[in-house]
Simulated assay, not measured.
Amino acid sequence: MPPTDASAHAAPATGTDSDGGDLTGACAAERSTDVAPEPVATDCEDTLDLRLPDELLALIAEQAGADEVPVAGSDGATAPPLSAVTAPPLLATGAPPLFAATLDHDLLDGVAEWGPVGTPVGTFHLVPVVIERDLPLITRWMNDPAVAEFWELAGAESVTGEHLRAQLNGDGRSVPCVGVLEGAPMSYWEIYRADLDPLARHCPARPHDTGIHLLIGEVADRGRGLGSALLRAVADLALDRRPACARVVAEPALRNTPSVAAFLTAGFRFSAEIDLPDKRAALMVRDRSLRLVL
């Protein structure tokens, strides 16, 4: 389960915390598979569903009958351009504009096709990561001390590359993206199926719950409200593009009060405190039914 702390989203005014509100990072360690779930006190609407989703069962059956899963562009067809709408010049570095391996098998209803969205801070676009194009930039962000504290991916490009490829070569339950604001890449996001993630072992989950991990890459973009504005926009975008999803969730470190505050400002509610293998977290939830109220 990748990080979901909002410090990467809207880095605190101090510019140090990166857990869940002011977005500089989030817990990056994958949850241990042998840690037993603990009961969580939640409201009556947060219920635990332990049935494997039909999509996952179908995917398992599909993979059992195939030696390998094809990736986008493997048939020689030309993949779509980075963004027909925004065509961010800062991302057009000459690398092939291929969404290689960003097929999400419909587990996330085509994040690559979600398109740009207007926000109070400008036009924002989630662009699925292309290793050849985006690895140097994301590696630089991961080596920012404020980000590294929570994501734990500081080091050579191979460290960040391994983290990205694990998602890109996976079954599509997590899609890494670069956040492009007004044509400039400024944040890193992971949009994932929270009900298929190790997070579901530690807190109540519903089918099609969508999780968000975020970090804001540039120090100058932190601590001035961008995180909250973009969190709200992306959460609502997920609800708009994923009709089966009733909730968007995140789990910033409880100690990261700026991150928790950013989620609250973005229309998330505090659902519960949960113990994860690497932190005590605040389970934050943005409900479809409450999106017009919060």
Rank of each mutant, 00 (worst) to 15 (best):
residue 37 P to G: 13
residue 187 S to L: 03
residue 178 V to Q: 15
residue 249 V to C: 13
residue 256 N to C: 08
residue 155 G to Y: 01
residue 160 T to P: 00
residue 281 A to Y: 00
residue 102 T to P: 04
residue 137 L to E: 02
residue 31 R to F: 14
residue 173 R to N: 14
residue 135 L to C: 03
residue 38 E to Q: 15
residue 77 A to F: 14
residue 90 L to C: 05
residue 175 V to S: 07
residue 44 C to D: 01
residue 79 A to M: 06
residue 203 C to A: 09
residue 62 E to L: 15
residue 7 S to K: 09
residue 284 M to P: 04
residue 28 A to Q: 08
residue 94 G to W: 02
residue 202 H to N: 06
residue 203 C to R: 10
residue 85 V to A: 15
residue 191 I to A: 07
residue 31 R to D: 07
residue 87 A to D: 14
residue 195 D to R: 05
residue 87 A to K: 04
residue 275 D to S: 02
residue 40 V to A: 01
residue 51 R to M: 11
residue 264 L to T: 13
residue 159 V to M: 09
residue 293 V to Y: 09
residue 97 P to K: 07
residue 244 A to N: 14
residue 101 A to M: 05
residue 105 H to P: 03
residue 103 L to G: 15
residue 280 R to V: 15
residue 109 D to Y: 08
residue 145 P to K: 12
residue 149 E to R: 15
residue 259 S to L: 01
residue 145 P to L: 11
residue 132 E to C: 11
residue 27 C to H: 06
residue 244 A to Q: 15
residue 157 E to Q: 11
residue 213 H to R: 06
residue 138 I to A: 10
residue 215 L to E: 00
residue 100 A to V: 06
residue 290 L to Q: 15
residue 225 G to C: 14
residue 230 L to D: 02
residue 15 G to T: 01
residue 84 A to C: 00
residue 260 V to P: 06
residue 5 D to C: 03
residue 218 E to H: 10
residue 117 V to L: 07
residue 1 M to W: 01
residue 159 V to R: 13
residue 234 V to L: 01
residue 244 A to M: 15
residue 35 V to G: 13
residue 222 R to E: 12
residue 72 A to Y: 04
residue 252 P to W: 05
residue 269 R to D: 15
residue 104 D to W: 15
residue 145 P to D: 11
residue 180 V to E: 05
residue 188 Y to G: 13
residue 286 R to G: 03
residue 101 A to T: 03
residue 169 N to V: 00
residue 178 V to E: 15
residue 231 L to G: 00
residue 95 A to G: 04
residue 120 P to F: 10
residue 263 F to Q: 14
residue 60 I to A: 14
residue 177 C to S: 07
